[in-house]
Nucleic acid binder design. Structure first.
Length: 260
DNA sequence: TCCTTATGTATAC
DNA sequence: TATACCTAAGGAG
Protein backbone atom coordinates (compact mmCIF):
# COMPACT_ATOMS: atom_id res chain seq x y z
CA UNK A 1 0.00 0.00 0.00
CA UNK A 2 3.01 2.29 0.36
CA UNK A 3 2.92 5.36 -1.88
CA UNK A 4 -0.81 5.16 -2.41
CA UNK A 5 -3.78 6.88 -0.80
CA UNK A 6 -5.48 4.58 1.67
CA UNK A 7 -9.12 4.34 2.57
CA UNK A 8 -9.43 3.71 6.29
CA UNK A 9 -12.48 2.72 8.27
CA UNK A 10 -13.29 1.09 11.56
CA UNK A 11 -16.34 -1.13 11.00
CA UNK A 12 -16.27 -2.13 14.66
CA UNK A 13 -16.25 1.53 15.69
CA UNK A 14 -13.57 1.28 18.38
CA UNK A 15 -11.07 3.13 16.19
CA UNK A 16 -13.57 5.31 14.36
CA UNK A 17 -11.88 8.59 15.25
CA UNK A 18 -8.44 7.37 14.21
CA UNK A 19 -9.71 5.82 10.99
CA UNK A 20 -11.38 9.11 10.04
CA UNK A 21 -8.08 10.92 10.63
CA UNK A 22 -6.26 8.46 8.33
CA UNK A 23 -8.83 8.13 5.59
CA UNK A 24 -7.52 9.28 2.22
CA UNK A 25 -3.95 9.97 3.31
CA UNK A 26 -0.99 8.40 1.50
CA UNK A 27 0.91 5.65 3.30
CA UNK A 28 4.56 6.69 3.09
CA UNK A 29 6.16 3.63 4.58
CA UNK A 30 5.87 0.88 7.17
CA UNK A 31 8.48 0.01 9.73
CA UNK A 32 8.70 -2.50 12.58
CA UNK A 33 10.59 -2.19 15.86
CA UNK A 34 10.30 -5.41 17.80
CA UNK A 35 6.61 -6.31 18.01
CA UNK A 36 5.51 -2.78 17.13
CA UNK A 37 4.41 -1.77 13.65
CA UNK A 38 4.52 1.88 12.64
CA UNK A 39 2.87 3.18 9.48
CA UNK A 40 3.69 6.72 8.43
CA UNK A 41 1.03 8.71 6.63
CA UNK A 42 1.41 12.02 4.81
CA UNK A 43 0.54 15.21 6.62
CA UNK A 44 -2.79 16.63 5.51
CA UNK A 45 -2.31 19.83 7.49
CA UNK A 46 -5.15 19.12 9.88
CA UNK A 47 -2.96 18.40 12.88
CA UNK A 48 -3.57 14.64 12.79
CA UNK A 49 -0.54 12.62 13.95
CA UNK A 50 1.66 11.09 11.25
CA UNK A 51 2.03 7.60 12.69
CA UNK A 52 -0.28 4.65 13.13
CA UNK A 53 1.05 2.39 15.90
CA UNK A 54 -0.14 -1.22 15.89
CA UNK A 55 0.76 -3.91 18.41
CA UNK A 56 -1.02 -7.23 17.90
CA UNK A 57 -0.60 -8.42 21.48
CA UNK A 58 -1.62 -11.99 22.15
CA UNK A 59 -4.54 -12.36 19.81
CA UNK A 60 -4.36 -9.60 17.22
CA UNK A 61 -4.02 -10.43 13.52
CA UNK A 62 -3.88 -8.81 10.11
CA UNK A 63 -5.70 -10.53 7.29
CA UNK A 64 -5.23 -9.54 3.65
CA UNK A 65 -7.75 -9.71 0.84
CA UNK A 66 -7.59 -9.14 -2.91
CA UNK A 67 -10.06 -7.24 -5.06
CA UNK A 68 -12.34 -10.27 -5.23
CA UNK A 69 -12.52 -10.46 -1.46
CA UNK A 70 -10.41 -13.62 -1.37
CA UNK A 71 -8.08 -13.84 1.57
CA UNK A 72 -4.45 -13.80 0.46
CA UNK A 73 -2.52 -13.69 3.73
CA UNK A 74 -2.91 -14.11 7.45
CA UNK A 75 -4.48 -16.82 9.52
CA UNK A 76 -7.70 -18.02 7.86
CA UNK A 77 -10.84 -16.78 9.52
CA UNK A 78 -13.41 -19.58 9.62
CA UNK A 79 -16.41 -17.66 10.86
CA UNK A 80 -15.85 -14.57 8.72
CA UNK A 81 -17.75 -11.47 9.68
CA UNK A 82 -17.00 -7.77 9.77
CA UNK A 83 -18.21 -7.20 13.30
CA UNK A 84 -14.77 -7.29 14.91
CA UNK A 85 -12.80 -5.30 12.37
CA UNK A 86 -10.85 -2.70 14.33
CA UNK A 87 -9.39 -1.19 11.20
CA UNK A 88 -9.89 -1.83 7.52
CA UNK A 89 -7.30 -0.34 5.17
CA UNK A 90 -7.92 -0.42 1.43
CA UNK A 91 -5.70 0.79 -1.43
CA UNK A 92 -5.97 0.71 -5.19
CA UNK A 93 -9.02 0.14 -7.28
CA UNK A 94 -10.43 -2.44 -9.64
CA UNK A 95 -8.31 -5.55 -9.93
CA UNK A 96 -5.44 -3.86 -8.05
CA UNK A 97 -7.45 -3.25 -4.94
CA UNK A 98 -6.05 -4.73 -1.73
CA UNK A 99 -7.48 -4.72 1.77
CA UNK A 100 -5.92 -5.26 5.17
CA UNK A 101 -8.21 -6.22 8.02
CA UNK A 102 -6.99 -5.71 11.60
CA UNK A 103 -8.66 -7.57 14.48
CA UNK A 104 -8.01 -7.95 18.16
CA UNK A 105 -4.92 -5.74 18.31
CA UNK A 106 -3.74 -4.71 21.74
CA UNK A 107 -2.79 -1.29 20.41
CA UNK A 108 -4.10 0.62 17.40
CA UNK A 109 -3.47 4.31 17.88
CA UNK A 110 -2.27 7.47 16.17
CA UNK A 111 0.97 8.88 17.57
CA UNK A 112 3.12 11.91 16.84
CA UNK A 113 6.91 12.00 16.52
CA UNK A 114 7.45 12.64 20.23
CA UNK A 115 5.24 9.73 21.22
CA UNK A 116 7.06 7.53 18.72
CA UNK A 117 10.38 8.48 20.33
CA UNK A 118 8.99 7.58 23.76
CA UNK A 119 7.87 4.18 22.52
CA UNK A 120 11.20 3.48 20.82
CA UNK A 121 13.15 4.57 23.91
CA UNK A 122 11.60 1.65 25.80
CA UNK A 123 12.83 -0.88 23.25
CA UNK A 124 16.16 -2.65 23.24
CA UNK A 125 18.00 -4.05 20.23
CA UNK A 126 15.85 -5.84 17.63
CA UNK A 127 17.55 -8.91 16.06
CA UNK A 128 15.68 -8.22 12.82
CA UNK A 129 17.12 -4.73 12.41
CA UNK A 130 20.54 -4.12 10.85
CA UNK A 131 21.08 -1.14 13.17
CA UNK A 132 20.66 -3.25 16.31
CA UNK A 133 23.30 -2.95 19.03
CA UNK A 134 23.12 -6.10 21.19
CA UNK A 135 25.53 -4.63 23.76
CA UNK A 136 22.67 -2.48 25.05
CA UNK A 137 20.69 -5.60 25.91
CA UNK A 138 23.67 -7.26 27.55
CA UNK A 139 24.25 -4.24 29.78
CA UNK A 140 20.85 -4.95 31.37
CA UNK A 141 21.40 -8.71 31.52
CA UNK A 142 24.80 -8.61 33.20
CA UNK A 143 23.57 -6.52 36.12
CA UNK A 144 20.35 -8.43 36.74
CA UNK A 145 19.77 -11.32 39.11
CA UNK A 146 16.61 -12.32 37.23
CA UNK A 147 16.68 -15.58 35.26
CA UNK A 148 17.70 -15.42 31.62
CA UNK A 149 14.27 -16.80 30.67
CA UNK A 150 12.63 -13.80 32.35
CA UNK A 151 15.05 -11.28 30.88
CA UNK A 152 14.39 -12.55 27.35
CA UNK A 153 10.74 -11.53 27.70
CA UNK A 154 11.69 -7.93 28.39
CA UNK A 155 11.43 -5.72 25.33
CA UNK A 156 14.16 -3.41 26.60
CA UNK A 157 16.55 -6.40 26.60
CA UNK A 158 15.64 -7.82 23.18
CA UNK A 159 12.88 -6.09 21.20
CA UNK A 160 10.69 -8.68 19.54
CA UNK A 161 11.66 -11.61 21.75
CA UNK A 162 8.80 -13.52 23.31
CA UNK A 163 7.82 -16.82 24.87
CA UNK A 164 9.10 -18.96 21.98
CA UNK A 165 12.46 -17.21 21.86
CA UNK A 166 13.01 -17.13 25.60
CA UNK A 167 12.88 -20.94 25.40
CA UNK A 168 14.51 -21.65 22.06
CA UNK A 169 17.44 -19.20 22.26
CA UNK A 170 18.75 -20.50 25.63
CA UNK A 171 18.54 -24.06 24.25
CA UNK A 172 20.50 -23.16 21.13
CA UNK A 173 23.12 -21.43 23.28
CA UNK A 174 23.26 -24.33 25.75
CA UNK A 175 22.22 -22.21 28.73
CA UNK A 176 19.68 -23.13 31.42
CA UNK A 177 16.96 -20.44 31.33
CA UNK A 178 17.08 -20.34 35.15
CA UNK A 179 20.65 -18.99 35.05
CA UNK A 180 20.76 -15.44 36.46
CA UNK A 181 21.52 -12.75 33.93
CA UNK A 182 24.65 -11.71 35.79
CA UNK A 183 26.05 -15.23 35.26
CA UNK A 184 25.69 -15.03 31.47
CA UNK A 185 29.09 -14.27 29.96
CA UNK A 186 29.70 -11.91 27.06
CA UNK A 187 30.52 -14.77 24.62
CA UNK A 188 27.34 -16.54 25.74
CA UNK A 189 25.34 -13.38 25.06
CA UNK A 190 26.96 -13.15 21.64
CA UNK A 191 25.86 -16.72 20.96
CA UNK A 192 22.31 -16.03 22.15
CA UNK A 193 22.13 -12.95 19.95
CA UNK A 194 23.51 -14.78 16.93
CA UNK A 195 20.90 -17.53 17.28
CA UNK A 196 18.14 -14.95 17.60
CA UNK A 197 19.28 -13.14 14.46
CA UNK A 198 19.51 -16.34 12.44
CA UNK A 199 16.26 -17.95 13.52
CA UNK A 200 14.10 -14.84 13.62
CA UNK A 201 15.35 -13.84 10.16
CA UNK A 202 14.54 -17.32 8.88
CA UNK A 203 11.06 -17.12 10.39
CA UNK A 204 10.39 -13.84 8.59
CA UNK A 205 11.72 -15.23 5.31
CA UNK A 206 9.49 -18.25 5.68
CA UNK A 207 6.50 -16.10 6.49
CA UNK A 208 6.05 -18.07 9.69
CA UNK A 209 5.31 -20.28 11.49
CA UNK A 210 8.63 -20.51 13.22
CA UNK A 211 10.98 -23.40 12.74
CA UNK A 212 14.07 -23.50 14.89
CA UNK A 213 15.65 -26.94 14.38
CA UNK A 214 17.44 -27.26 11.04
CA UNK A 215 16.05 -29.55 8.42
CA UNK A 216 12.91 -29.65 6.33
CA UNK A 217 9.51 -29.16 7.84
CA UNK A 218 6.21 -29.62 6.02
CA UNK A 219 4.52 -26.35 5.08
CA UNK A 220 2.58 -24.93 7.95
CA UNK A 221 4.15 -27.19 10.57
CA UNK A 222 5.81 -25.74 13.63
CA UNK A 223 8.92 -27.43 14.97
CA UNK A 224 10.82 -26.34 18.04
CA UNK A 225 13.73 -27.58 20.09
CA UNK A 226 11.93 -27.31 23.43
CA UNK A 227 8.95 -24.94 23.22
CA UNK A 228 5.76 -26.82 24.18
CA UNK A 229 7.54 -30.17 24.07
CA UNK A 230 6.83 -31.20 27.68
CA UNK A 231 8.01 -34.75 28.33
CA UNK A 232 9.10 -35.37 24.76
CA UNK A 233 12.69 -36.48 24.13
CA UNK A 234 15.24 -33.78 23.44
CA UNK A 235 16.11 -33.74 19.73
CA UNK A 236 19.81 -33.80 20.68
CA UNK A 237 20.23 -35.93 23.81
CA UNK A 238 16.80 -37.61 24.25
CA UNK A 239 16.40 -36.30 27.82
CA UNK A 240 12.70 -35.51 28.44
CA UNK A 241 11.96 -31.81 28.03
CA UNK A 242 10.91 -30.09 31.25
CA UNK A 243 8.41 -27.29 31.84
CA UNK A 244 7.90 -24.98 34.77
CA UNK A 245 6.32 -21.59 35.47
CA UNK A 246 8.64 -18.59 35.13
CA UNK A 247 7.50 -14.96 35.23
CA UNK A 248 3.88 -16.09 35.16
CA UNK A 249 4.24 -18.18 32.01
CA UNK A 250 5.76 -21.52 31.07
CA UNK A 251 9.39 -22.09 30.27
CA UNK A 252 10.60 -25.28 28.57
CA UNK A 253 14.19 -26.51 28.59
CA UNK A 254 16.36 -29.62 28.26
CA UNK A 255 18.09 -30.53 31.53
CA UNK A 256 20.64 -32.53 29.55
CA UNK A 257 21.76 -29.87 27.06
CA UNK A 258 21.40 -26.63 28.99
CA UNK A 259 24.10 -25.90 31.53
CA UNK A 260 23.20 -24.32 34.84
C1' DT B 1 -23.37 -23.72 24.45
C1' DC B 2 -19.82 -23.11 27.53
C1' DC B 3 -15.00 -23.28 28.79
C1' DT B 4 -10.17 -23.03 27.82
C1' DT B 5 -6.33 -21.51 25.46
C1' DA B 6 -3.27 -18.46 22.59
C1' DT B 7 3.86 -16.69 20.18
C1' DG B 8 1.42 -9.99 25.03
C1' DT B 9 1.50 -6.17 28.08
C1' DA B 10 -0.39 -2.48 31.25
C1' DT B 11 -1.92 -1.75 35.69
C1' DA B 12 -3.15 -2.58 40.47
C1' DC B 13 -1.92 -4.57 44.45
C1' DT C 1 1.93 -11.93 41.45
C1' DA C 2 -2.84 -11.32 39.90
C1' DT C 3 -5.92 -9.60 36.67
C1' DA C 4 -7.98 -7.15 32.83
C1' DC C 5 -8.18 -6.65 27.92
C1' DC C 6 -8.98 -8.05 22.95
C1' DT C 7 -10.70 -12.19 19.41
C1' DA C 8 -11.12 -16.86 17.56
C1' DA C 9 -10.64 -21.79 17.54
C1' DG C 10 -11.03 -26.24 19.56
C1' DG C 11 -12.84 -29.32 22.86
C1' DA C 12 -16.01 -30.74 26.50
C1' DG C 13 -20.69 -31.41 27.72
Amino acid sequence: MAGRPVHASSPQGRFAHGAAALDGRVLEHAEAYGKNLFLRFTDRGDGAPPWLHVHLGLIGAWRWFDSAGTQTAGRPLLAADGANRRLLLQAGSGADKVSADLRGAMTCALVDDAQLDTLLARLGPDPLRVDAEPAGGYALVRRSGAPLGTLLLRQDVVAGSGLIWRCEAPFMAGIDPHRPGRAVSEPEWAALWSHLVTTMTAAVARGGPVVTPPGPAPAGEQRFWVFRRTGQPCRVCATPIEVEPMAGRSVWWCPGCQAA
